[in-house]
C-alpha cells in the first residue's frame, strides 16, 4: 500500500469517526472518538514525516499525541466526572444531523474540487476531508447543547486544520506551529476551566441556559 493510499484511507477513517461524533449521544463515547480522531491524525503526521523526511513534523505528531490525545481528553474526562453527566438529550434527530453532515461534506468537496495543488503528496481526499472536519466541527458546536461538546467541536475543527496543514504544506513554519499548539492547549484548558466554572455557578453546563445576555 503506498503512502497516498494510506493517507486516503486514514482520511476516510477520520471522516467516518467525525460522522460518528455527530451522532454520538454519550459524552464519554464522544470524547473517546475525539481521542481516536487525534490519534489517527498523529498517525498521519508520522506518515507524512516519514515520507517527506521533515523532522519537525515528528515533533508535531508527538505534540498532537501529548496535547490532544492525552491532555485534552484528560481535561474533558475530568470535567465530565466533575459535572456528573453522561448523556445529552433533546437534540436534533440523528437522521437530520447526518443529512446535514453529508451536505457539508458535499460543500467541502465542491469547494476544494477546482483547486489544483502542484506540490503536495496529499491524497485526493485528504483536503476535502479536512475541510469537512472543519465544517462538521462547527456543526457539532451548533447542534450540541453541552459546553463540553463545544470543546469537542472546537478540537475537531483544530484537527481539520491540522490535517490541511499536514497534507498540503508539510506543516507550517515551526514557530507558527508551536504557537498554534500552545494556543490550542491554553484554549482548551481555559474552556475546560470555564465550563467547570459555569457548572458551579449555573448548576448546568447546558449552553442553552446561558441566555441572559440578549438583544
Amino acid at each position: 500500500m503506498d503512502t497516498v493510499k494510506l493517507l486516503d484511507f486514514s482520511a476516510l477513517i477520520l471522516l467516518f469517526s467525525t460522522g460518528l461524533l455527530v451522532v454520538s449521544r454519550r459524552l464519554e463515547l464522544a470524547i473517546g472518538l475525539l481521542a481516536f480522531q487525534s490519534l489517527v491524525l498523529a498517525f498521519i503526521s508520522v506518515l507524512v514525516a516519514a515520507t517527506t523526511g521533515i523532522e519537525h513534523i515528528y515533533l508535531a505528531s508527538i505534540l498532537t499525541v501529548l496535547v490532544k490525545v492525552v491532555g485534552a481528553t484528560a481535561v474533558l474526562i475530568y470535567v465530565l466526572r466533575k459535572v456528573k453527566m453522561r448523556r445529552e438529550t433533546g437534540l436534533m434527530s440523528r437522521g437530520l444531523s447526518l443529512a446535514l453532515v453529508v451536505g457539508l461534506i458535499l460543500v467541502s468537496y465542491n469547494t476544494i474540487h477546482p483547486i489544483k495543488l502542484a506540490n503536495t503528496i496529499s491524497s485526493p481526499n485528504s483536503l476535502p476531508v479536512a475541510m469537512s472536519m472543519v465544517l462538521i466541527g462547527l456543526f457539532i458546536m451548533v447542534s450540541r447543547k453541552k459546553a463540553l461538546m463545544a470543546v469537542v467541536g472546537l478540537i475537531t475543527i483544530e484537527n481539520g486544520l491540522f490535517l490541511i496543514a499536514l497534507s498540503t504544506t508539510y506543516g507550517m513554519p515551526l514557530l507558527v506551529e508551536f504557537g498554534i499548539f500552545f494556543d490550542v492547549a491554553v484554549g482548551v484548558m481555559l474552556m475546560g476551566f470555564f465550563a467547570f466554572h459555569i457548572n458551579t455557578v449555573f448548576e448546568t453546563i447546558n449552553t442553552d441556559e446561558l441566555n441572559r445576555l440578549k438583544g
Binding site: 462547527l138 451548533v142 450540541r144 463545544a150 441566555n211 441572559r212 438583544g215
Partner: peptide
Amino acid sequence: KVIQNGSVRLYLSYILVTLLILL
C-alpha cells in the same frame, strides 16, 4: 431581537451559514 437571543449555538450557526453562503 430574536437574532440575538443569547444562544451561543445560534450565534455559531450564523458563522456556519455565512461561511457556507460565501463558499
